[in-house]
Structures are given as structure tokens and as C-alpha cells.
């Protein structure tokens, strides 16, 4: 559709216009708290993306800080999914157990994960384990609760069909329950993904010897406003890219689903 292409074009025009306005404003204001976007972009380039081609143009600072942060986010999401999805499916298919556990789940979910950080620091000491524990504790709830919801609302006609055709338990799980649960599970992943970035920064601010949050905290302590803004912009870009990746995965996995059927 030409309208869609136009729409896409406009999005970039609006973005570029926004950045240009920011540039003009910061250049005229000359505030030390708000560096010009051009300075931020140049700082980002020199700091992280001017490395040798053999390292995909990543500098030592990038491999030392960006990659550990990204690793923590991905490892935590993998753990939250590996625990949350099977548990969610098991609970979703056993309404009685879920009814008993529900107050406990709601209580645990309502705990601000930030307040749990001191507990994790005591349990795991400062470092990667504590950071991953914090991110996992924060991101598991959307995945778990959405999966419970999805698994509990599998169409009874589909389950009946599985019975009528004498599917084994394993077949029923893999060909009926899991696919039927995925749309809601993906809604959970989406929430968890944005939460994971926030918690990654938080955990690294609390105590870490590397990572984007660590770099941010250093920049803040040194009043290096350009570096601070660079990390903020980087986090925005990272969030956008991860979300785009998830959307692509979702489109692939849920090609059959109603929300993707609009042509």
C-alpha cells in the first residue's frame, strides 16, 4: 500500500525533524546539562563503534561494557522463560492448584523488585549472579502470569478434538496447548523485555564492575554529561532493536494468529 510506504517515510521524517530541533535548541541554549545530539552521536561512535573491523567495529569499551549488559539481559530472559513458561503451562492446566497459589503469586508479583535487591546482594554478593537474580525476579512475572492465562484459556473444543483423536499427553501438549498458549506468552515476553532493560541498568547501578549501568554511574559521578546521554541514547536504541527482534520472532511463530492476519 502506498499509504503504508508514506507512513513509514513520515516516521523517519518526524524522527529526523525531532533530532534536528533538539540539535538547534541545544546548540543555541549551550547548557552543559544538555549536550548537542551531534556531540552525543560522535561520543557514541568514538567510545563504542570505532573499533577494528575484526571486532565488528566494537571498541574495547564496547566489548567490556555493552556485551556484559546484553549478556545479562539475554541470560535473564532465557532463565525467566525457561522457568516461567513450563511452570505457567503446568499451572494454567491445573486450575485448582493455581487457585491455591494465586494469593502467593499476586503477593510475590506485587513486591517491587527494587526492594528485593538488598536481599539478592546478601544472597549472591555483588556481581553478575545478583544482577541476573534481580532481572529474573522482575521479568518472570509477566511471562508466568500470561502463560498461566493462555494455558488456562485453551479452547475446550480443541482439547476435545485432541481426545477424540486419541492424542498422547505429549502430543496434546506440543500440538495443542503450547501453540494455543503462545499468543498470550508473547504478550508477556514483550513486557518482560522492556522490564529487563530497566532492571539491568538498575542492577548495574547498584553494584557492578562493568556494564552500561556501571558506565552510566561513572559518567554521572564524573559529571560527564555527554557520556551520560550517550548511554541513555544507547539504551533507547538497544530497547528498540530488541523489541524489533521480538516482533520479528513473534510474526514468525504466530504467523497463523489473528493479529498477524491483516493483509
Amino acid at each position: 500500500m502506498s499509504w503504508k510506504r508514506l507512513d513509514w517515510g513520515w516516521r523517519w521524517i518526524v524522527l529526523i525533524a525531532g533530532v534536528a530541533a533538539w540539535q538547534l535548541w541545544t546548540a543555541s541554549a549551550r547548557s552543559s546539562f544538555f549536550p548537542e545530539p551531534s556531540a552525543i552521536i560522535s561520543s557514541m561512535y568514538h567510545l563504542w563503534f570505532s573499533g577494528p573491523a575484526a571486532h565488528v567495529f566494537l571498541t574495547a569499551d564496547a566489548t567490556g561494557n555493552l556485551l556484559p549488559s546484553l549478556g545479562r539481559v539475554l541470560a535473564s530472559l532465557a532463565i525467566a522463560t525457561a522457568v516461567g513458561m513450563p511452570l505457567g503451562i503446568a499451572l494454567g492446566r491445573s486450575p485448582a492448584v493455581t487457585a491455591y497459589l494465586n494469593p502467593l503469586l499476586q503477593f510475590a508479583r506485587a513486591l517491587p523488585v527494587v526492594t528485593m535487591a538488598p536481599v539478592f546482594i546478601v544472597l549472591f554478593k555483588l556481581g553478575t549472579q545478583m544482577e541476573i537474580a534481580t532481572i529474573v525476579f522482575g521479568t518472570i512475572w509477566p511471562i508466568l502470569l500470561n502463560t498461566i492465562d493462555g494455558a488456562a484459556s485453551v479452547d475446550p473444543v480443541q482439547l476435545e478434538t485432541a481426545r477424540a483423536f486419541k492424542m498422547t499427553h505429549w502430543q496434546r501438549l506440543t500440538t495443542v496447548i503450547v501453540p494455543a498458549t503462545l499468543p498470550k506468552a508473547f504478550a508477556g515476553f514483550r513486557l518482560s523485555l522492556s522490564l529487563s532493560l530497566i532492571l539491568m541498568v538498575f542492577a548495574e547501578l547498584v553494584g557492578s564492575s562493568n556494564g552500561i549501568g556501571y558506565e552510566m554511574s561513572n559518567a554521572s559521578n564524573a559529571f560527564d554529561m555527554t557520556l551520560l546521554w550517550s548511554t541513555i541514547v544507547l539504551l533507547g536504541i538497544l530497547g528498540y532493536l530488541l523489541n524489533a527482534l521480538l516482533t520479528a520472532g513473534e510474526r514468525h511463530a504466530l504467523a497463523w494468529h489473528a493479529i498477524n492476519r491483516r493483509d
Binding site: V157, Q158, T161, P179, H257
Partner: peptide, 11 residues
Amino acid sequence: LQEYGRSLFPW
């Protein structure tokens, strides 16, 4: 089954 639309697996 009666509800054939729902008994086929859309995925």
C-alpha cells in the same frame, strides 16, 4: 464435531 471451525488447529 459440530464446531468444525474451532476443532481445526489454526496453527
